[in-house]
Design a protein around this nucleic acid. Sequence first.
DNA 1: TTTTTTATTGACTCGTCAATCAATAAAAAC
DNA 2: GTTTTTATTGATTGACGAGTCAATAAAAAA
Lengths: 190, 190
Amino acid sequence: MPKLGMEPIRREALVTAAIAEIGAAGSLDVTVSAISKRAGMSSALAHHYFGNKDQIFLAAMRHILAGFAVEVHSRLSLANTPRDRLKALVEASFARSCFDPEVISAWLNFYVKAHSSPDAMRLLRVYQRRLRSNLIHALRPISRKPEELADAIAALIDGLYIRAALGAPISRDPAATILAFTAPHLEDDQ
Amino acid sequence: MPKLGMEPIRREALVTAAIAEIGAAGSLDVTVSAISKRAGMSSALAHHYFGNKDQIFLAAMRHILAGFAVEVHSRLSLANTPRDRLKALVEASFARSCFDPEVISAWLNFYVKAHSSPDAMRLLRVYQRRLRSNLIHALRPISRKPEELADAIAALIDGLYIRAALGAPISRDPAATILAFTAPHLEDDQ
DNA sequence: TTTTTTATTGACTCGTCAATCAATAAAAAC
DNA sequence: GTTTTTATTGATTGACGAGTCAATAAAAAA
């Protein structure tokens, strides 16, 4: 059976399975066996390709981050005004692919994981810095305090995320809500 | 050594130790032994009083919720106008006792735990409902859409919490920030 | 065709940890 | 002073799960 070039296929399958498994369990208390089984292989193979469980989680996180980056860039490339760029960033955070319950659950767990894993924390910082600098860049022409506004918007995004993860009441259109709260804090000129 | 009436003392010590241990580890992957050791007793005794590990976690959560309720009520009792009540609620969320890193870390972990433990979820709902109804009550006289505003404020609180837990950039005065974002959405008459 | 490389797994090892239990001790009740 | 109740722990059990390894198989390279 050994066909060549299985590695990327196996890795992808494991990453997908890990996200699904984390989503189903609602925690990182998921066995390598369960992930491997869902991905259609033995746990030994998972260890062969990833070394250990943490590496699987990190790969899953990178996968999710990459998906988010795609959402951001595709929207950002269509935006011409600062306002549109802001809209693009907020809406990207609530795109289907990012707002998928499985993905939200993974995020929440990685938030926690970051507290005990320097690698996870590093990855999280990458996301945070990217979002922050994108927000500030979009806000600079239309806000007197772009940094503060950016941090507040980021907090609103995170908050809506966590509430979505918990099934708490949130508006049906989170992006619009965030923009509505942001609007009064923006200048009126383009 | 057996002095009578040790149970409440032991329970309290275990709850405190559990919160400290969770804060130090940054996760719920904490052994009963570690908690018991910190609390100055054997793990067998912890099991004797609490039955199992989950009960210790739940008790810790109840302890934190109770602390929050104290912060809320003490501030609410001094507030006379709707605006003051809103301020009281937001400021209570960022009171020293609630904003303690250990406590924030515990909250974050319980958020996750709630996904796999109906008991934890039930407790979380209690907090969410209380905060929501308090917010709506404060907002009703000064907002046209108290429910929506309440949900947005709750999201901001949660978001700032999570960011504080992660050491992400947040304003030095979170409560003031939230009120600043809320203000434009309020009517002007008290 | 032989050898090397890649893919793959079942079985096993080794720790860890929640939960139990029997045993001890001291207060309180009788 | 005997008995019961409460407090307490060391030692043990039992399960589970991460990571290893030797063995197998098939493609590719020689």
